[in-house]
Design a protein around this nucleic acid. Sequence first.
DNA 1: CTTGATTACTGGACTAGACCACTTGCTTTT
DNA 2: AAAAGCAAGTGGTCTAGTCCAGTAATCAAG
Lengths: 250, 250
Amino acid sequence: MKSMANVLLRNSNVPLHAQITEALQLQIERGELKAGENFPSERDLAERFGVSRMTVRQALQRLRHEGLIYRERGVGTFVANRKIDVHTRNLSGFSEEMASLGLTPSSRVLHLKREKADQQVAQDLDLEADDEVFRLERLRLADDEPMAFETTFLAAQFCPELDKIDLTKNSLYQVLIEKYNLQMHHAAESLEAAAATRFIAGQLGIKANSPVLVVHRVVYSEANEPIESAHTTYRADRYRATFYLSKNSL
Amino acid sequence: MKSMANVLLRNSNVPLHAQITEALQLQIERGELKAGENFPSERDLAERFGVSRMTVRQALQRLRHEGLIYRERGVGTFVANRKIDVHTRNLSGFSEEMASLGLTPSSRVLHLKREKADQQVAQDLDLEADDEVFRLERLRLADDEPMAFETTFLAAQFCPELDKIDLTKNSLYQVLIEKYNLQMHHAAESLEAAAATRFIAGQLGIKANSPVLVVHRVVYSEANEPIESAHTTYRADRYRATFYLSKNSL
DNA sequence: CTTGATTACTGGACTAGACCACTTGCTTTT
DNA sequence: AAAAGCAAGTGGTCTAGTCCAGTAATCAAG
């Protein structure tokens, strides 16, 4: 059809393949490329955008990876009927997660002290027996209602003087990025159901022995160094964790 | 250093980039490429393997995607200090998951009937109001101990005569692949804590009101068509779900 | 009507180059 | 001794092709 080369900024700092990804994504979202119809071939797209075929392949690979399209050798490329996504649990913290759900997050800091790491924490954070950590306990609220009780451990060597920072107003993850240049890259989480202890129940304003969802998370940097270990206990009546699983693809 | 071109089978049906990925992965796992040391540059690798640079880039991109390496522009490529992995919840079914934990899975089929889809199921499976589904209820055991109670819904149009198959011995996912050519590609899961109802408690051999982990899963094909909707209720004292989360990367 | 070959088109793989932005370490100049 | 400049090396991007294997539609021969 018509040329789309005009859409691309040739001397931008944004790579061409990223611009193409964005352009196609937009067309999919606007419904200009629908689920049943024929998607243009790689050679088509290369000509339209005025780029090499390898460049459009890079863009298509990205779209495929995000689940927007799928491809069949010898047949063609197709738009996937998108339905899910929404609020899958990703690598954001409590504040970001609640905000994305349209709730107003807040916190009460109940405890913030430097102490020796216990065995479990030392293992999670890959520390020696005598290394020190910050232990941070917070009650986490959404729209001023208690939602979760969270205990976070951070290696003291990575974030000295953390106890001088007001974590009531600042997102912990923001602080870690801005003050200490700690970028989180991936995480391992384990979830289990439990009955609320009296202490937890009191904090969350629920009955003792009510079901709660306990999430244990260890966050890692890109080099796979553990940054944070956290236990979060959510009220079962107000919280549900959602995940997106995919096959080993690419 | 030495040439590695001999490692590659030039006329194999396995692409070169995949062979390179495998070769490097092996070297990392064997410790020949350690976490602190210098990883060979793209140009190095291209020369050693006797391939083009774009080809080794494809291999490196894959390794990065799997979290084995990370890269810094202008600096180099590095092996990530791998630690985690183990038994993260992936797109396998109960049988596969238990087997990978070293437990022997088995099932008791309590119910398998064709019926009209209720509203929730119709929505999950993208069906019309009158479409029929198979409802499959199973008690799932690990080493002959009750582990979970599972209710599965499958669109009847995709797997006719499912009720003629013995699901005690066959993995449902195996049947779907082999008999109906239904390949699962990704899934959405939501997890919440709850208290066991009397019925569930009886099935699982636990006390009523004990905490249980309820997992709701919808599995999709590559074209993003919903294949299966399932509710699984796990004993909290024997089961914990673990996930791996990563940033939007490529 | 069915079967089989041809053909055009698809995505996948791969090459051999090029240029760029960035980092780092060395060297030269202040 | 400190600062500025340079050069080498890195990953990131991009090109303009080639060849291959799989699909699907067409068309001719049985």
